[in-house]
Every structure is written in C-alpha cells, then in structure tokens.
Simulated assay, not measured.
Amino acid sequence: MIGYILRRLAQSILVVLVVTIIVFILLHQLPGGAARAILGPRATALQVAQFNAANGYDQPLLVQYFRQLGEWFTGNFGFSIKLNQSVSSLLVQRLPKTIILSLLSLILTVIVAVPLGIYQAVRRNRSFDYIATGFSFIFYAAPTFFIGIIMIEVFSQNLGWFPPEAPQSNGIGPIFEQFDAMVLPIVTLALLSIAGFSRYMRSSVLDNIDQDYVRTAQAKGASPRRVLYHHVLRNALIPIITLLGLSLPALFAGALVTESIFNFPGMGLLFWQAAQSSDYPVELGVVIITAFATVAGNLLADVSLAVIDPRVKL
C-alpha cells in the first residue's frame, strides 16, 4: 500500500510540474508579452522595458521559469492590477466559498444519484427507469447557464421560494446564515453531476448483479436486500469513487458559470471578472490552484480506491 501511494504521489508531482510549464508557456505567448497584457496597449516601450526589468521578464526563460515556480509554490501569484490587491489574498477570500459550494453540491449529488442509480438498476427497463433516463439525458446535455436561468425564473421570479442571488457578505458565516439563498446555486450545480453519477451507478450495479459472487450469495439463501446492499453496493461504488476525484475540474467549470449567474463571490466569479478585465495574474493564480486541486482530488480518489478494492494494489 505504501509503495502504491508513493508511486501515485510521484506521478501527481510530475503532473503538477507539467501544468506549471504549460501555464508558464501560455504566459509568454500573450500578445506583446505579459507586460503589454497587464499595462495595456497604450504603454510606451520604456514602460514595458521597466516592467520587464522589475519583474524579471528580461532574464533567460529557464531562469524565469524556476523563479516563477518558486513563487507559485510559496503562494506568491503576483498582484492584481485591476483590484489593487495581491492574488494570494484574493484566493484566500474566495477559495473557501467555492469549496463549500462545490462540496455541498457534491454531497447532494451523492445523496440523490446513488439511490437513484440503484433503483434504476433494480427496476431496469421499466417506466421509472425510462423516465429517469430521459431526465438524466436532459440535464446532462443542458448548459449550466440554461439550468440556472430556469431555476431563477421558476423558483425565484414565479414562485418566490428562494432569492435570485447568492449571499454577498464576506466570510463563510453568511453562507449558512442565509442558506435559502444558497439553494438554487447548489441545486443548479448538482443537477449536472446527478445526471452523470446516476448513469454510472446504474451501469455499475447492473454489471455486478450478474457476477458469480451474487449468484453464490443468492444460493446460500441471502435475501435480495442483503445481496444488494451488503454485496453489490460496495463493489458498485468503486467507479463512483474514481468519478468523485475526476469530477473536480467539472465542478469548478460548473461553479464558474453558476457563480456568475447567481453573483456568488467565489473563485468562479473571480475568474470570470478577471477574464473580462484582462487581469492575467488573477487568471493564472486561479488556474494554478485549480490544477493543484484537481491533482489532489485524483490522488485522494486513487488512494481511496486502493483501500476499498484490494485488486488495485496488485
């Protein structure tokens, strides 16, 4: 087990290094360079030269990369020109909110998708299975912004059940104090994942129902409920665990649009505003943090999979 974890950790570190190289290359592929992108097209040649000298962009690329790599790993992502604030402080303010939004939507996804997939597998090729499959395809194909707009129109404008805007106060406390304002963003983000997770769960349960160990348990007189929840469920959850780690990038992509629609002050809205104002240091900081979170999520999923499924260690 220890050897497996060390190998996966080494692979994760390598992936993070590759991501930093790609981000570094993209930074230097900006039109006119980073100086022109940050200072604007009206900056003079003298201003560009002074900016490059002050930030080390006049040094060799290899020297620049290792200097930038050291700054990234110490939490220094530069300074936001538009917001007049360090990128690190912006990430510290916004990251916990996005984590809470993504975590709550992920919990809702698992609570709904796992039982739904199991029930679809048990009642396969029946009316409920067809109806649930149809709704899954609809939500799986629907864009995030479309679902969010429908949620606001129906549950906020027409029915008046929930506010159309997420909590705007700083800190994590208002999220739970004004939780009714969080319902629509959480449900919007969760609906996209429920559609995919339920389909994976249904397929995984159907694959395990036909295995020899299920027939053996049935031959020993085990009840259908015991066979399903004691034998089948544990093995059927293995693909879902892997999917949880792989869902982090999709959750962030969905959070970017969801936070923009509901004006939720998280990392997604921060990235959206930075893209509109060409605030490249903020964009690069968000990309690096997202890459770290994605690699960490995949590593956690792999380790959890090795704990649950002994075949992985082989």
Rank of each mutant, 00 (worst) to 15 (best):
I2G: 12
Y4G: 08
R7P: 07
A10I: 14
Q11M: 14
S12T: 09
V15S: 04
V16Y: 08
V18T: 08
T20F: 02
T20C: 08
I21R: 07
I25K: 06
L27H: 03
L30I: 03
A35C: 09
R36P: 01
R36D: 01
P41I: 06
R42P: 05
T44M: 11
L46M: 13
V48W: 04
V48F: 07
A49D: 15
A49S: 15
Q50W: 10
F51Q: 01
A54S: 14
Y57S: 04
D58V: 12
Q59M: 13
L61G: 08
L61Q: 10
F66G: 03
F66P: 00
L69W: 00
T74R: 12
F77E: 00
F77L: 07
F79V: 00
K82M: 07
Q85N: 09
V87Y: 10
S88I: 02
L91W: 03
Q93R: 11
Q93L: 08
R94V: 13
K97H: 14
K97I: 14
I99Y: 01
S102T: 13
S105T: 03
I107P: 11
L108H: 02
T109C: 10
T109S: 09
I111Y: 02
I118M: 06
I118G: 02
A121C: 08
V122S: 05
S127Y: 13
Y130G: 09
F137K: 04
A142I: 03
T144H: 09
I149E: 12
I150V: 15
I150F: 14
M151N: 13
M151Y: 12
M151C: 13
E153Q: 09
S156G: 03
S156E: 00
A166V: 07
P167R: 01
P167Q: 07
S169W: 13
G171L: 10
G171Q: 07
G173W: 15
I175R: 11
I175Q: 11
E177F: 11
Q178A: 09
D180C: 08
A181L: 07
L184D: 03
V187I: 14
T188K: 08
T188Y: 04
L192H: 06
S193C: 04
S193T: 05
G196M: 06
F197R: 04
R199Y: 02
M201S: 04
L206K: 00
V214L: 05
T216G: 04
T216D: 00
A217N: 04
K220W: 10
K220C: 12
G221P: 04
A222C: 12
R225S: 14
Y229N: 12
H230Y: 11
R234E: 12
I238K: 09
I238G: 10
I241T: 12
I241R: 05
I241S: 08
L246R: 03
L248W: 09
L251N: 02
F252D: 00
A253Q: 08
A253N: 10
L256G: 06
V257T: 12
T258S: 06
E259S: 06
F262D: 05
F262K: 00
F264P: 01
P265K: 07
G268R: 01
L269E: 06
L269T: 05
L270G: 06
F271Y: 14
Q276H: 11
S277F: 11
S278Y: 02
S278D: 02
P281Y: 00
V282I: 08
L284K: 05
V287R: 03
A291S: 10
F292V: 14
F292Q: 03
D302Y: 01
A306K: 13
D309C: 06
K313Y: 10
L314P: 02
